[in-house]
Design a protein around this nucleic acid. Structure first.
Lengths: 207, 207
DNA sequence: TAAAAACTTGACCAGTCAGTCAAGTTCTCC
DNA sequence: GGAGAACTTGACTGACTGGTCAAGTTTTTA
């Protein structure tokens, strides 16, 4: 949808995006109807379709905006740090703080990753985040601070820990963001350092 | 729904569960209609409602079955191992193998975790799996093989790495299950060992 | 000030959905 | 063999969906 929007139009569009995001987060994407969105805002249905071609489109806009905002926040958090491992840590901490401040978006991103219609977009955003961290991992490896290993694998592993602990500790168990961040950082940096058979050495025959 | 089922009825119920699971995995839960399920099986709609009260109920049955089966598989994989760290490793490997053999269930479990109607069930299953691994972690800590840390946090961290790497490496990048398992185990055991400030020591002022 | 562009209304459409049910068929068990 | 239980059919219902559009209002522009 391409339209010349006045400031009034821009405000309305924002209002739709924000309200729709909160409804989608609470009820889910499919169960939330366009009628419900416009009624909640007290406007006619035509308003919705003046700004968006479809329910799908507004959801994609919501996702794009969230991804953009999160990435900016991450980059700002690490811009003055040159040590690669510290950049990883600061990136993790920034992500958790951002998620704590945008719980709705966390829910939306999690759902979108499971829906065929939106998972492409989510994965593309994920891939970008992983590329970012993989670069720091490469530097860390070349400095001998991180064990050899595929940087992309390791980046995804960090993402997985961050997402899971954020969901469980931050949102479900209501832990403080800094506590969650400490736990993620501890595990992620330990995971990066890797495991060379020392821990379980007493036990295993194979691998 | 409680009914006395003959063997014919049990077969039909199984057929409905399996076909519905494959449709839900491919199309998503909401977009898949009951009509689509019964038409795909070439039966009347009444058949569906003879065995299940609702579309929601069949989905819950699918999830329960998957959780039960996965847990059994995990337990079988570690039953003859006494070393706690090795039990963790074998549990991870068993999970990945099971998921590789049940890609539909992986998709379903991921979606269900994001839907308010089903997330309770998923979280309960997750909590059980985490309790299992937390027990091994506790033993590992008391043996001095794993750094101090909340066993539940660490258990969730392992779950997060396993899920993410399974999704990305196994299902998206089509890597061999054993390669995925190696990557997960490496990261998870390293993460358990923890991080005591050595890696990033050169860099950080604050935490 | 007047035309054009931006914005809003809400009734309406065609389609889909989960779920019902009266009627019929097949099976089990005595 | 016959009664009752298990199973199956598919037309039907009422609610709701995403999306359209002709008509109207407000704002911008020149």
């Amino acid at each position: 949808m391409v339209r010349r929007l006045t400031s009034r139009g821009l405000k309305r569009r924002d209002q739709l995006i924000n309200y729709a995001a909160s409804r989608f987060a609470e009820n889910g994407f499919h169960p939330t109807s366009v009628t419900e969105i416009v009624n909640g805002l007290g406007v006619g249905k035509g308003v919705f379709y003046w700004y968006f071609d479809s329910k799908e489109e507004i959801f994609i806009e919501i996702l794009r905006g969230a991804q953009r905002d999160l990435r900016r926040y991450q980059q700002k958090a690490i811009e003055n740090e040159s040590d690669p491992v510290a950049r990883i840590e600061f990136g993790i901490r920034a992500s958790i703080i951002w998620l704590a401040n945008h719980p709705d978006f966390f829910t939306l991103l999690q759902f979108a990753a499971t829906d065929e219609k939106f998972s492409r977009l989510i994965r593309a955003g994920e891939e970008i985040a992983v590329q970012d961290v993989a670069q720091h991992i490469r530097e860390g490896i070349s400095q001998g601070r991180i064990d050899e290993g595929d940087p992309l694998f390791l980046g995804h592993a960090i993402l997985g820990v961050t997402n899971q602990l954020t969901r469980v500790l931050l949102f479900e168990k209501k832990r403080d963001p800094s506590v969650v961040a400490d736990a993620v950082v501890r595990f992620a940096l330990g995971g990066l350092r890797g495991f060379s058979g020392v821990i379980a050495a007493g036990a295993m025959g194979g691998k």
